[in-house]
Every structure is written in structure tokens, then in C-alpha cells.
Design a protein around this nucleic acid. Structure first.
Length: 480
RNA sequence: GGUCCCUUCGUCUAGCGGUCUAGGACGUCGCCCUUUCACGGCGAAAACACGGGUUCGAUUCCCGUAGGGAUCACCA
């Protein structure tokens, strides 16, 4: 036993193959395992299935751990590396062989390919035909594999916690390979032995493994081990209903963080609601998720991935997030664009604007780009909308607005607004006639947070300076 | 193709025989708020795949059909 556990305690595990990044489907499987374990006060373990030496990589392992850590799915105990346990797997295979529950098969890959070709031609199901099942006339030095002597009659029913009772006839299953001719264990053997040794009580995984469960059960029964509970959750599909691929956002979770600028709690909440629901609740905290999560509520059909909804959920969490945290999260993004490290003053400026900025952003990238105008040095760049506003407003209005603002003694939001409104009234124009050109001059854009809020945070000198910049630029543009 | 599984608005879902004139959310559209954009508020269009049963009564139970998915390696 390598996974410490008390009798009756729930033990789950997440067991990814380190052949690539932690993708969104894997993250959801991890989430469900994590939540189920925590809900029952049990343990959540992590096992890296690195038996495929050709495809397993160190960077992939690092990416998986990084993703789980970012999502805050804290695992219990030490990480189990499957490859390191190969000797134990082989030991079980030989135990089975000695007990007569497994046998040597000397069929070569070519023999088997020939067999399958014949089955294909005859439109028969392609299954190992058991040709070595009862033979003992073993060639001396020929390589062989060890196959499980699986039951051939009757049927097996799994009471899957998600799928319900599922029955498969044993005749549908063939004798799977346990130990390869080079002595290495197959996945089927390794999974069963590791789950057993780790004390896993609930196997929660993608439903691409549902068929495997029946064969694994045969192995478990041959060993006389305790049978775990199974829960096979449907895979996530792309927006077109096809299997999730890179086209639909089957990215590593690091891409959700770095490229899409999403918050981990948003990704978690979205993943939780994908295939599972709790009444009409849309926003569910970690604590609530732990309290409410159950496997029976997981849908049996594949759910489609919807980036729009994920972004919407992210917007919700962004608006709820702490201003200092958000400021820290966009720090390097912003610094990269303006071409310098942020100063303490910069950060202070960002943080004081954050409550307004975050209402307008769906992700951290939007948040960072919408905050740039605060930190840019004069003269700040004008976008097309701003240039158009300034050109049509004319010099007079902007100059009069500047004069009105310059006369404001107390540089506060209400005082600035009062001054602008007074000017609009005196000129007999709508406030927008005054505010829009000002917005363009001060923010370089036709869209921004509340103008008076912006002016208040930027300060008198900076605001008047920016207006002067715009006046000069407009004058030059008009005379050119 | 064999086996297994699934099927409520475009999408995620609520519903677990009568509460359904089928609820919520995203998206879409309209209105309000308003100095812009957002946020927020209000409202609209939008679904029980189809056909048989069972039942006094089916979105809910059963069986077909269609559609979708998973899987059939000395890969995991």
C-alpha cells in the first residue's frame, strides 16, 4: 500500500499521461475527483502515467503540475510515477500466471495482424481469438506476452455512478495483454495495480475508459481484490459537437491563463457547470462546490465547450476580484506595452482606477489594454474615434473646456462634473458635446471609464497638459 | 461494422408522472440608466428529436427509428 488511507475513507485520483499540456478536459476530470474527495472528507491523489517512455516528457509533467497548482487542486501525499512501479506490475502479472489466471501467448504482431485482417474480411469483430489460451507447447526462446485468462461466458454489470448500470457480455471481451514481450506492463495492468496499491475507492475518469473498466474488473477479480466504484464522465466537445480539438479551445490551461487572461476561479466555475448543475445557481464558490458536488448530478451526454460563456463567467469573477490582485496580474502585461517597468506611482494609479476599469473588461488582456492610457507619456496616442471627435469638435469648445477646468479649485469628481455641466449650460449644448472631446483629449479614445473619475485620478497637471497636447495637434491638423 | 452510452431553447442546464402557458444562464434583439463604453435593470424571440406504447394523465416510465458520442493495440 503506497497511498495512506483509513478504512472507509474515500480516495480518488487524477492520472494524466504526461504526453502534452493539461488540457481543459483533464482539468475537469481533476476538478471532479478533487471535489468528490473533499466532499467526502477523503483523499485526492495524483499519479503520472508515464509508462509510454517515447511520448512522456518532463515539460509535460511540469505543465500538468503547474496547471493543477494554478487551479488550486491540491493533491494529497506524494505524486506516484507509474513507470517507477514497473517491477510491481510485472510481479502481479507473474502471480496471475502462476495462479493460472493468465497465460503465455506466443503470437507475433504479424500473426495478430493477419488474424485481424481475416476477421475484418469476414466482417467479424476484431478480437484476440485465444489461440494460446490452452496451449503449453511453448517454443524455447521465442518472445511471449502474458495475457489475462478472462471469463468467456456470462456478463459483467458495472453500477457506474454517472452512467448507471452498464452490462457487457464477457464474450465481447478478449484476453488482454498484461505484460509485453519486453517485460513491460501494459496500461491495463498498471492502472489496476496502482489503483489497488494506492487504495483508490472511486475511479472518476473520462468515459473513453468505460469499456476498459470491464476488462480491468476481470483482472481485479482474478486477483481477488476489492472492486472500486466507477464514475465515467462524458468528454467535452467543441462548439460544433465534434471532439474537442485545438480549433475549439482545446488548449493547455496555461493558455487560458496566459493567452486568454482568465482567472482560475472562473475556469473552475465554468468547468463545474459544464455537465453539472445545482438548481439555477450559476456562480458557485469552491466551498459551495465542495458542499454540493455529487456524481449523480453529472450529465451523461457530452457537453459543448462555449468560450463566450467562459468569458462571461470570467467577467463576473473579474468584477468581484480584489483591485490589488488585478493590478498585480496585469503588471507585466502593461509594462511590456509601455516599454518600461511600472513604478510604485504607476501601480497606485492603476489600483485606484481598477474598480472602474474592471467593469469594462472580460479578461486580463482587455483589462491591461484598457488601462494603458493612464500610464502613457504625453503626448498620448489618439485612436481613430478620438481623432474624429477632436476634429469635429473644433478648437473653440475644447479651449473653453480647458479654461473652465483650469478654474476648478478643488480637483474632485463632483467639482469637475459641476464645472463641465455649467459650461454646457452656458454654451446651451448637451454635456456630451463638452465631455466627448475632453474624453478624447484625456484618454486618447472615444470610450473610457467615467470621464470625471479619470480626470480625478490623473490629476490636474496631467489632464490640462493632455488637453493642451490635443489643442496643439488639432491646430496643426487644421492648418495642414 | 460489433459493443456500450447519450438526446429539454443556438450553447450550458433546471425538471426526477399532474406544480410546465417548460425555469435560469451565456449568446442574440429591444428598452431603460447615461458624458462614451461597460456595468446594472427591464423585456422579447428561442427547446422537451420522431413514432409507438404504459397510464386517468407524460418533458418525466418502456420499446422502436433517427441523430450524436465512446470504444474495439504488445497506446495510454
Amino acid at each position: 500500500m503506497i497511498g495512506a488511507s483509513e478504512p472507509g475513507k474515500v480516495v480518488t485520483r487524477f492520472a494524466p499521461s504526461p504526453t502534452g499540456f493539461l488540457h481543459i478536459g483533464g482539468a475537469r476530470t481533476a476538478l471532479f475527483n478533487y471535489l468528490f474527495a473533499r466532499h467526502h472528507g477523503g483523499e485526492f491523489h495524483l499519479r503520472i502515467e508515464d509508462t509510454d517512455r517515447a511520448r512522456s516528457t518532463e515539460p509535460a509533467i511540469a505543465a500538468i503540475l503547474d496547471g493543477l497548482t494554478w487551479l488550486d487542486f491540491e493533491w494529497d501525499g506524494a505524486i506516484v510515477y507509474q513507470f517507477a512501479r514497473a517491477a510491481r506490475h510485472a510481479e502481479v502479472a507473474h502471480q496471475l500466471l502462476a495462479a493460472g489466471h493468465a497465460y503465455r501467448c506466443y503470437a507475433s504482431p504479424e500473426d495478430l495482424e493477419e488474424m485481424r485482417a481475416a476477421q475484418r474480411a469476414a466482417k467479424q469483430p476484431m478480437r484476440y481469438d485465444g489461440r494460446w489460451r490452452d496451449r503449453t507447447d511453448w517454443p524455447n526462446d521465442a518472445p511471449f506476452v502474458i495475457r489475462l485468462r478472462a471469463p468467456q461466458t456470462g456478463s459483467v454489470t458495472i453500477n457506474d455512478l454517472v452512467q448507471g448500470p452498464v452490462t457487457v457480455a464477457n464474450a465481447e471481451l478478449d484476453d488482454m495483454v498484461l505484460l509485453r514481450s519486453d517485460g513491460s506492463p501494459t496500461y491495463m495492468l498498471a492502472v489496476v495495480v496502482d489503483d489497488q496499491d494506492m487504495g483508490v475507492t472511486h475511479v472518476i475518469r473520462g468515459d473513453d475508459h468505460l469499456n476498459n473498466a470491464f476488462r480491468q474488473l476481470a483482472l481485479i477479480r482474478a486477483m481477488g481484490w476489492a472492486e472500486p466504484h466507477y464514475a465515467h464522465i462524458p468528454l467535452i466537445h467543441g462548439s460544433d459537437g465534434a471532439k474537442l480539438s485545438k480549433r475549439h479551445g482545446a488548449l493547455g490551461v496555461d493558455a487560458y491563463r496566459d493567452d486568454l487572461g482568465l482567472l482560475p476561479e472562473a475556469v473552475e466555475n465554468y468547468l463545474l457547470r459544464l455537465g453539472w448543475g445545482h438548481g439555477d445557481d450559476e456562480f458557485i464558490s469552491r466551498a459551495q462546490a465542495v458542499e454540493w458536488f455529487d456524481l449523480a448530478g453529472v450529465g451523461r451526454g457530452p457537453a459543448r465547450f462555449d468560450l463566450k460563456k467562459l468569458e462571461s463567467v470570467n467577467g463576473h469573477y473579474l468584477r468581484a476580484a480584489d483591485d490589488a490582485r488585478l493590478t498585480a496580474l496585469i503588471d507585466t502585461k502593461v509594462g511590456g506595452v509601455i516599454g518600461r517597468d511600472l513604478t510604485a506611482d504607476d501601480r497606485n494609479l492603476l489600483q485606484r482606477s481598477m474598480s472602474e476599469l474592471k467593469k469594462r473588461a472580460a479578461n486580463l488582456n482587455d483589462l491591461a489594454s484598457s488601462s494603458l492610457f493612464l500610464l502613457r507619456s504625453r503626448p498620448i496616442p489618439m485612436d481613430d474615434g478620438a481623432a474624429k471627435l477632436l476634429a469635429s469638435a473644433g478648437l473653440g469648445n475644447l479651449a473653453r473646456a480647458r479654461a473652465a477646468l483650469a478654474g476648478v479649485a478643488d480637483w474632485s469628481v463632483p467639482a469637475l462634473e459641476t464645472a463641465a455641466r455649467a459650461l454646457a449650460e452656458a454654451e446651451a449644448v448637451k454635456l456630451g458635446q463638452i465631455a466627448q472631446p475632453l474624453r478624447a483629449a484625456v484618454t486618447g479614445s472615444s470610450q473610457s471609464p467615467g470621464l470625471f473619475d479619470v480626470m480625478a485620478v490623473l490629476g490636474r497637471d496631467e489632464v490640462l497638459g493632455r488637453i493642451d497636447d490635443a489643442l496643439i495637434a488639432t491646430q496643426e491638423g487644421a492648418s495642414a
